[in-house]
């Protein structure tokens, strides 16, 4: 009997010892976890520097600019809470690239990531950068030399279309092109189509927040206005209601895939809503171009660059999640 008690006591002591050891081990482990966590947190608030490519221009330098935007996707947003965009080496900059960057920054802000940057060292690029209107939405380190010009970057349209805003911007653009502030019904219709497409299709079931970005670049000396419209949703090719052979063609890519984008703008694909009276938006956009109300229409979506002027669709090496439209209006266009 006594022997049994002794054995039980020994077992009890061993258990207590083991429990103490375990508690000590857990304490160190938790401490280590906490310190690591603290370190990660500290590191995440340090600015992560992102270098902007020297030729930051769309659609002309599309491959390089798209590679840059894809590289941004690899930034781990849980460990980087502050991004610093270094524009110092930029020598060429366009509204198109700035507008996509703005849409990206909008998405970053949604994730709680702050963004700021500096100015290009090149005086011409700096002037264009400052006059673009981009700085209305972006904190910069350094002194401004130019005030915002007539150029307007319209921030995110969130979950709604805004026909009043688009009509105001169109009227301003007709002033630059024809020296008369007037409406342009076809371009207004086209802009509403673009905004509605973004709201209804671009983000269907996606992780990104809905939104569109629209920029207008006035060039009074040439009586010309350049427009860019961007959404960073799924892209046109991903949102079409394709039948099986077209899905295969899209997968194969090359000229088969390129053909799909042309057919989409001819209104051949239905909408994902599966309603027969939908999917007219892209066709209407092409019609505005064909009737001569706009010129130089170009679209970048998924891995396709579609130039309406020579009706060519080129397969890009770099993928773009979203849709980018570019067009111009000058005094040779209809109004």
């Amino acid at each position: 009997m006594q022997k049994q008690v002794v054995i039980e006591r020994k077992i009890y002591k061993k258990r207590r010892k083991w429990k103490k050891k375990k508690a000590k081990y857990n304490l160190y482990r938790n401490l280590e976890k906490k310190s690591v966590r603290r370190k990660i947190k500290r590191e995440s608030y340090k600015p992560k520097i992102v270098k902007i490519p020297s030729l930051f221009s769309l659609p002309s330098e599309r491959e390089a600019v798209l590679i840059f935007f894809n590289s941004l996707d690899s930034v781990h947003y849980k460990t980087a809470r502050y991004l610093f965009f270094d524009f110092s080496e930029v020598i060429e900059i366009s509204h198109g690239a700035i507008t996509i960057l703005l849409s990206f920054i909008g998405w970053l802000n949604d994730q709680g990531v702050r963004a700021s940057g500096n100015f290009p060292d090149d005086p011409d690029a700096k002037e264009k950068f400052e006059k673009s209107g981009f700085l209305e939405f972006f904190k910069t380190i350094g002194k401004r030399s130019y005030e915002k010009g007539m150029n307007t970057i319209v921030a995110r349209g969130e979950k709604r279309t805004n026909s009043e805003l688009s009509s105001k911007l169109i009227r301003k653009s007709t002033k630059t092109v024809w020296n008369i502030e007037d409406k342009n019904m076809k371009v207004q219709g086209m802009l509403i189509e673009l905004m509605a497409n973004t709201i209804n299709h671009a983000y269907a079931g996606g992780k990104y927040q809905k939104g569109w970005y629209f920029s207008v670049d006035h060039i009074p000396d040439e009586n010309k206005v350049k427009f860019c419209f961007v959404d960073n949703g799924h892209g046109i090719l991903k949102t079409l209601r394709k039948k099986f052979p077209d899905k295969i063609a899209s997968f194969i890519g090359g000229k088969f895939g390129n053909n799909i984008i042309k057919r989409a703008f001819d209104g051949e694909f239905g909408s994902r809503t599966k309603l027969s009276n939908r999917g007219r938006g892209l066709k209407a956009i092409k019609k505005v171009y064909q009737l001569g109300y706009i010129k130089s229409l170009k679209v970048i979506t998924n891995n396709i660059y579609y130039d309406f002027e020579n009706d060519t669709a080129e397969e890009l090496k770099t993928y773009f999640d979203g849709t980018f439209y570019f067009w111009e209006i000058d005094n040779t266009c209809k109004r």
Partner: peptide, 15 residues
């Protein structure tokens, strides 16, 4: 007398 129409506006109203 308006600033312009999108196809979706007209389609919804008249459809």
């Amino acid at each position: 007398g308006t600033e312009g129409y999108a196809t979706s506006f007209l389609d919804e109203a008249f459809g």
